[in-house]
């Protein structure tokens, strides 16, 4: 049975479509990457890589609805491997500073929010992703599972564990 999908164009038109996606979604994806990594330049690199990957992958994408899902999954993957990639490309390790926020950002954010964000970044990757997708992007468990490439059960478990760990960390900072 024919699936209700839209065949995507290739070539120049495809490039224009990717550019349009960039205009629409790049900033939101950078925010997502920033929450995962805590570093804006790194977040921007990850998003740029994701869109370049989409350009390369475009001919094999068969559904328009897949593009944003692809980008989101690509950003999550980029967040996981950013330091390894940097090492490979540049031959040096570039661990992000412990707190890469400016003084102004720190003031705007407030201590309570900074503690939560720092706690989120201490979570293991799967828990961190699950918590951010569920409570920042308000994704359902199904949507988060699809974005993370895991089952709904894993999302639920990771979210529960992540929140419990986060609560424990915040309790200890009191």
């Amino acid at each position: 049975m024919q699936q209700p999908t839209e065949t995507l164009p290739t070539g120049l038109e495809a490039r224009q479509r990717v550019s349009a996606l960039y205009q629409t979604h790049a900033l939101a994806l950078k925010k997502l990457a920033f929450l995962m990594t805590g570093d804006q330049p790194t977040a921007e690199d990850i998003v740029q890589d994701a869109f370049l990957g989409l350009c390369r992958r475009w001919p094999s994408l068969h559904e328009t609805g897949n593009a944003l899902g692809y980008l989101r999954a690509s950003v999550l993957n980029g967040c996981r491997s950013v330091h390894r990639l940097r090492f490979r490309r540049q031959g040096i390790t570039l661990d992000a500073p412990a707190d890469s926020l400016s003084a102004e950002d720190i003031a705007v954010l407030g201590e309570a929010n900074r503690e939560v964000l720092a706690g989120i970044r201490r979570l293991p990757p799967r828990q961190r992703e699950a918590v951010v997708l569920r409570y920042y992007l308000d994704m359902t468990e199904d949507q988060a599972a699809q974005a993370m490439g895991v089952t709904r059960g894993t999302v639920k478990s990771a979210t529960s564990r992540g929140l419990a760990a986060l609560a424990r960390m915040l309790e200890e900072t009191k």
């Binding site: 920033f34 929450l35 977040a43 926020l101 705007v108 407030g110 929010n113 900074r114 951010v132 920042y136």
Partner: peptide, 10 residues
Amino acid sequence: TATQAGAALV
């Protein structure tokens, strides 16, 4: 709250 505030920095 924290993630919305953090994202707003971008």
